[in-house]
Design a protein around this nucleic acid. Structure first.
Length: 467
DNA sequence: AGCCTCTTGCA
DNA sequence: GCAAGAGGC
């Protein structure tokens, strides 16, 4: 019998346009697909709670698809290098095919896998990005640090390869023992907090394809006009499918030719991944060194109010509650809540990054780190330090009828549009008529907005002076 | 991918 | 009295 190859799937949980799968099939050998759950090697960046919920359903869907195609998915739990080496030994595999890792911890781990399986080779193919980060560089040969020229360079780099269809069948190898997915305990049990996630999402490749089709058919032409309005269904909501590689950026790119504004968002994703590639400490340390001296505050109560959506600022609380209940937050609101944490509360962006990592179904190391640093002002192409989002003005501008706030902060539902984003501005009689008592039925603001803004501007200005 | 203040133009 | 645009932070 022909010796098999392993197809090690990690964050490319799809059959459509999966170059690693294609490379494995091209060997002409039986293919044994494997997924290894390793909660040790990633350290702080092991998947968070919401990501684990998603992963469970994604693996269940992929497993069913792979059975149908003839190559059942093998699940193992343990250190990546041990488990891949063990599987090579068990199966007599002559090669291991995988997606090119993009996270710094994974890039290091794959080097230990290479040592552990030698002389069997690990063959990596880029599955997560349009281009390998080394392909996109400035004339001077340096990585791009500003989005606009980066995007221009990607667009000028040549046509994006067309997506490959899923194979009709996969020649499987001899049977290999697999863990039972249920035994991994990826789903929350006591308490089961995933009710809102189940309502909001259909994880897995079929769900990804359905969502893409629906967005292209019904949302793409309105994207530019509605993308910033959190009360509407104006964004693609593809991010969680991207996070586990249930859809490929090439497929999304080629499906969205009718809207360059949306393609820009695909390129922002690409930009963040390239930034992390070239700056491995991006998730932990400010890219601009002078930000290490930022006098962040220590405020457990403020952090907790932010996490729970109890800051007393309606649009912030709506966003944080949307995140808690659905595992996702509208992008416009992500910028608002992040700015509020980092600037008005002056809490370190790493605390927000960690909370998002645990609660987002689309948690992605590069996107999360690059975006938090962008808001904090410490990242590449960052928002200037003096750019402080005013959550009341943002709310009035992007949620003018308060639909979003009312949906996620129902205790404010009866307030008139004019004050729904600033209940403290409402005359006492208006608040009373709406059933609101500040500090009782809804929190008083944890920080006075003008004072918080001034405090942040002063701290950031001092930082700039030092630099 | 901001906010604020000031100015201008018009009612 | 205000909306809209310019320019500084």
């Amino acid at each position: 019998m022909t010796a098999p190859v392993l197809l090690w799937l990690r964050r490319e949980l799809r059959l459509t346009d999966n170059p690693a799968l294609r490379a494995a099939l091209a060997t002409g050998r039986p293919v044994i697909p494997v997924f290894v759950l390793d909660d040790e090697t990633p350290g702080a960046w092991a998947p968070g709670g919401a990501s684990r919920w998603w992963l469970h359903h994604s693996l269940a869907a992929l497993g069913a698809d792979l059975v149908r195609l003839g190559a059942p998915l093998v699940l193992r739990r343990g250190r990546l290098d041990f488990e891949i080496a063990r599987l090579v030994a068990e199966t007599g595999a002559v090669e291991v095919h995988a997606g090119t890792p993009t996270e710094p911890w994974a890039r290091a781990a794959y080097r230990t896998v290479i040592d552990a399986i030698a002389p069997v080779k690990l063959r990596c193919t880029m599955t997560a990005l349009l281009h390998h980060p080394d392909e996109i560089r400035t004339q001077a040969g340096t990585p791009y640090g500003v989005f606009t020229p980066f995007g221009r360079a990607v667009r000028a780099h040549g046509p994006i390869a067309l997506p490959e269809p899923a194979p009709a069948d996969i020649p499987g190898g001899a049977a290999v023992a697999s863990d039972d997915l249920e035994s991994w305990g990826l789903l929350p049990a006591a308490p089961d907090w995933a009710g809102g996630l189940r309502t909001a999402w259909s994880p897995g490749e079929a769900g990804a394809q359905a969502r893409l089709r629906e967005f292209v058919a019904e949302g793409l032409d309105q994207y530019r006009a509605r993308r910033d309005l959190p009360g509407t269904d104006g964004t693609s909501r593809l991010s969680p499918f991207f996070a586990w590689g249930e859809i490929s950026p090439r497929q999304v790119w080629h499906s969205s030719a009718a809207c360059e504004k949306f393609r820009d968002e695909v390129l922002w994703r690409e930009f963040a991944a390239h930034l992390l590639w070239h700056n491995p400490t991006l998730p932990d340390a400010p890219l601009r060194a002078e930000f290490a001296a930022m006098p962040w505050r220590d405020d457990q109560a403020g952090l907790r109010a932010w996490q729970r959506g109890q800051t007393g600022i309606p649009i912030v609380d709506a966003g944080m509650r949307q995140l808690w209940h659905t595992g996702w937050m509208h992008n416009r609101v992500r910028m608002i809540v992040a700015s509020f944490l980092v600037k008005h509360l002056m809490l370190p962006w790493q605390l927000g990054e960690a909370w998002f990592w645990d609660t987002l179904v689309d948690a992605d190391l590069a996107q999360n780190a690059a975006s938090w640093q962008w808001v904090a002002g410490s990242g590449a192409d960052a928002a200037p330090y003096f750019r402080v989002f005013n959550p009341v003005l943002q709310g009035r501008k992007f949620d003018p009828d308060g639909a979003y706030v009312r949906r996620y902060v129902p205790e404010l539902a009866l307030l008139p549009d004019s004050v729904v984003h600033a209940p403290w501005e409402a005359p006492a009689l208006v608040r009373e008529a709406a059933g609101i008592r500040l500090g009782a039925t809804y929190p008083a603001p944890v920080v006075e907005l003008a004072a918080g803004r001034d405090r942040a501007l002063q701290a950031f200005a001092a930082l700039r002076k030092v630099a």
